[in-house]
Amino acid sequence: MTLEEIGQTIEAEVLTGQDRLRDEVAVGCAADLMSDVLAFARSDAILLTGLANRQVIYTADVAGISAVCIIRGKKPDQPTVELARQKGQVLMTTRLPMFVCCGRLFAKGLPGLGYLDISKGDGDR
C-alpha cells in the first residue's frame, strides 16, 4: 500500500516527506513502546504510535522505518518535525485513535507483523 493511500485511509495530515508519498509499505506496526518497535519492526513498515516525541523519530531511524504516523490528534513539536525532515522520514498525524487507524488499514489489506516471539529472537531481521 502506498503512503498516500494510507494517509487517505486514516485521514492523516502529512508533515514531512511529501515527495515520498508514492513509496510502498508492506506492513503496519502499531506500538507505544519503542523497545517493541526496535525488537520487532521491519524496515518496510509504517509505525503508528501515540507518542509524539523525538524518540519516535530516533527509534524509527535506528530501526530503518521511514514512515511514522502519530495518532489521536497529538501534534509533535517543531524540533521533532525538523528531526523527521533531517532523517528523511515521512511524518503524518491523524486525529483518529489507534484502534480505528489499525482497523481501517487492516480492512484495506495492510497486514500486521504476524505472531512474534521475542524469546526466539523474532525481532532480529
Binding site: 513502546l33 519503542m34 523497545s35 517493541d36 526496535l38 504510535t49 521475542i118 529472537g121 525481532g123 532480529d124
Partner: peptide, 16 residues
C-alpha cells in the same frame, strides 16, 4: 511515558 522503560532494553540488545 516516553515509550521506554518496559524492561525490554537488555533483552533487545541480547537478541539482536
Amino acid at each position: 511515558e516516553l515509550g521506554f522503560g518496559a524492561g525490554m532494553g537488555l533483552c533487545n540488545i541480547k537478541n539482536c
